[in-house]
């Protein structure tokens, strides 16, 4: 924190990032003007439904989106490098080294033809000039650290010989093998059994403590976010619609979409006849509504005068310390709605 220029910029900051894919049906705006930042060692959770653009954002940061088939604009600053304009070969050198990613489905994310040890060793040797023997030693160490039992034997197994949870541990070991400073976890527990989900989330949290890694956790499940994230960005229709520190987002959410997500978490601590899903479907990224993208599914848009929600895109505006909301409703109206919905959720008659 001594050099001001470097100190002012967070470790990772995404500014006005847009990713658009030209298709025969028109331009698909998968990500549209997304901004967020994460301080070193912190965890940002990016939450949203399928198609909200969260995975595309993650892949854009990793440079996994083919620049020939997509139009990427905006800025992605990782430490002191801007990744959107960085030559592809330089991004490739950062990938798997400075920044690493684990994916949703560990069943299909490992190559079925190669031994798990060899797949990790390959990741070591592409970034560091070490002997195969040394790489193998490091691999075995890392596999042990992520909790693979009988590592000496397992290291020469093929992926199909491991369970889903074990494969995700292998993916985590592969991601961590070069001590990255940024780890992106794209729905790391979605494809796993519930009991295994908790283990994997614990593993990610403990790894973050141990290695002081910055983590972006992408999920559609607000339930898993509470324990691990410092800040939450809620995405909808390719945009960030609300951003707040985790406790604020859970206790005082202001965007109706976030409220909807919170209401649809199943709970054990009170009687619920049924879940409260958000009605309707996410918008098609080809024909986005002219106004607020959430308006067609929103319960409250009629409370905004002049059909503003139907005609004008709301901006992402500050509503409290570190709390940004994209909504036309007046702040006091929003807070009233929130209080009402949350008290209903808690079972207190309003």
């Amino acid at each position: 924190m001594t050099t001001p220029a470097a100190a002012q910029r967070p470790f990772l900051s995404v500014n006005n990032l847009s990713v658009a894919f030209p298709t025969e049906d028109g331009l698909v705006r998968a990500v549209d003007g997304v901004s967020f930042s994460v301080e070193k060692g912190q965890t940002l959770a990016v939450v949203g439904e399928s198609g909200s653009g969260k995975s595309v954002t993650a892949q854009a940061i990793m440079g996994l989106i083919n620049r020939k088939s997509a139009k990427i604009t905006g800025e992605i600053w990782l430490d002191d490098q801007e990744l959107v304009r960085l030559p592809a070969s330089d991004v490739q050198a950062l990938r798997g080294d400075q920044m690493a990613m684990i994916f949703q489905d560990p069943m299909s994310s490992l190559h079925p033809f190669y031994r798990i040890g060899d797949q990790i060793i390959e990741a070591v040797q592409v970034h560091r000039n070490v002997s195969k023997k040394q790489a193998r030693r490091e691999t075995i160490d890392m596999l042990r650290r992520v909790g693979i039992p009988a590592v000496e034997r397992r290291v020469d197994d093929y992926p199909h010989q491991l369970s889903g949870g074990m494969r995700q541990r292998v993916m985590i070991a592969m991601a961590l093998i070069n001590s990255p400073s940024l780890l992106i976890a794209d729905e790391p527990t979605t494809a796993l059994d519930v009991t295994v989900q908790a283990q994997i989330m614990e593993l990610i949290a403990s790894i973050q403590d141990e290695f002081k890694i910055t983590v972006i956790l992408i999920t559609h499940d607000l339930g898993v976010v509470a324990d691990v994230a410092d800040e939450v960005a809620v995405m909808y229709g390719g945009r960030v619609v609300e951003r707040a520190p985790t406790s604020v987002l859970y206790l005082k959410p202001e965007m109706p979409y976030t409220l909807g997500l919170l209401s649809s978490i199943p709970r054990m601590d009170k009687e619920m006849d049924r879940l409260d899903p958000i009605p309707g479907n996410p918008p098609s990224p080809i024909n986005l509504p002219a106004g607020c993208v959430f308006q067609p599914r929103c319960f409250y848009w009629s409370q905004v005068p002049d059909d503003l929600c139907k005609t004008t895109r709301p901006e992402l505006l500050s509503t409290g310390p570190d709390h940004l909301v994209r909504c036309h409703l007046a702040p006091d109206v929003r807070r009233e709605i929130t209080a009402k919905v949350l008290s209903e959720l808690a079972g207190v008659p309003s």
């Binding site: 990793m62 996994l64 490739q92 050198a93 950062l94 990938r95 798997g96 080294d97 690493a100 990613m101 994916f103 489905d105 299909s108 994310s109 490992l110 190559h111 079925p112 390959e122 990741a123 592409v126 970034h127 993916m171 592969m174 991601a175």
Partner: peptide, 17 residues
């Protein structure tokens, strides 16, 4: 389009590999 090819890219392997 397979996930494991994306994993290979995420590892930072050169495109040819």
């Amino acid at each position: 389009g397979e996930d494991y090819v994306r994993t290979a890219r995420a590892k930072g392997l050169p495109e040819r590999t």
